[in-house]
Write a protein that binds this DNA or RNA. Structure first.
Lengths: 220, 220
DNA sequence: ATAAGATAAATTGGATTCAATAGAAAATGA
DNA sequence: TCATTTTCTATTGAATCCAATTTATCTTAT
């Protein structure tokens, strides 16, 4: 008798399932800023008790994705134009450095994976996928750096602005320009030109910053 | 009848009390890497139930201060030399930029507060206080930048290495050099020289990095 | 009609209890 | 004696229940 055994300590707990679902709903803009997260409602939705929901919400708060107030519950965090600006500046500081460190370490497999990523972005007619594909492209390149701490921090920065970025990509047809920039970054990586990749990344982020800041109030 | 009213929504929940106490115990090195955090034990210690303890632990995990494994509980995170190195590099990237942005915005009150801070550091005979005083000095200067997102990220980076840094300060009598560097940074700020303050901050962090990396294995 | 007070309902915070899992100890077999 | 299996204990995951607080609704007074 052949059984597919599963290491049960690796299966997802209720709280991590809820956390991931809520995180995704927030970064994809399915729940809006200011929207309350009702523990009992979410618990019903996931057919669990409120305890794992509370734990998930605690984690989301540490990620800055929700704000809780004692006895009043959690609401989805908003992001002011000032905050968005700051987070872009932060990314423009960190990500060029990460990709600069990553370039000399990139394997042919990584570069191939990244090419598939921008190609998929380019080819996708489904706006709902652009956000994930955009992140996948950048994550693939950055991962080669091995700088895990930096990557975790970048992930959080992206989570914080993703819902707006995604809406912006859909609304403004900014994907064409994003794609051109992705290809240019990728080409610099292929050429092993770390400084060029870093500079193009910085320009890419700054461009997204300007574009988003012009429209942030209509993206909420 | 005069009553001192308290906004009850601002009083600390059980879980946030436990979180803060555990966070402090970890960054001060009172619980060591690898040490398990027993939910029932902590709950007894704080005279509460396990639920707030679980929530606190969930939050600590998001901060990277503990690692949990399903059905096995939480242990205090360790930090390898590679990880420590990366976090210092990260700080050396971010903190100079933050102070560079802060310098033109520093008020006389801020500068006076920072002077008090390095003076207190200099005067303190209590090694247990050096860690807090060190952080207080830097936080005072950086806060003037108004870059709240950067500050939160720096706080987390510091939390991740603080237990080792504190042990290092005590063990190596590094406080004298740290203090000289604090004064030099402060003087650059007083002079309004943002570039100098940034460079001295970068050197300060890099020096701490080299020093810590030499000794990290004996600091656990 | 509006404001204030009282009551009810909704929601959160957390204590207690039950279920599940991992690890330790004891029992059994070779 | 050693290896394997079984049983027991410790601990975690989460369901249920109770207490506390906030919000909504209803009633009364002006």
């Amino acid at each position: 008798m052949k059984l597919n055994s599963v290491d049960i300590s690796k299966t997802a707990s209720a709280s991590s399932i809820v956390f991931e679902a809520l995180r995704r709903a927030i970064i994809e803009g399915e729940v809006k800023e200011g929207e309350p997260l009702r523990q009992d409602e979410i618990a019903r939705l996931f057919n669990t008790s409120r305890i794992p929901v509370r734990e998930a919400i605690s984690r989301l708060e540490e990620q800055g994705l929700v704000k809780t107030q004692r006895y009043k519950g959690a609401v989805v965090s908003g992001l002011s134009a000032t905050e968005a600006e700051e987070i872009f500046d932060f990314r423009a500081l960190i990500e060029p450095e990460v990709i600069r460190r990553a370039v000399p370490l990139m394997s042919p497999e990584t570069l191939d994976r990244a090419r598939s990523s921008w190609a998929a972005f380019s080819a996708s007619a489904d706006p709902m996928r652009w956000g994930d594909l955009n992140r996948d492209f950048h994550a693939t390149l950055y991962r080669a750096s091995g700088l895990q701490y930096h990557l975790d921090v970048i992930d959080n920065a992206m989570d914080r602005i993703d819902r707006y970025l995604r809406a912006q990509l859909v609304m403004s047809n900014g994907m064409e320009r994003a794609n051109e920039e992705h290809i240019a970054i990728w080409e610099a990586c292929v050429a092993g030109n770390a400084a060029q990749a870093a500079e193009l990344t910085r320009i890419h982020i700054s461009g997204a910053r300007e574009s988003l800041l012009q429209n942030i109030n209509s993206l909420r």
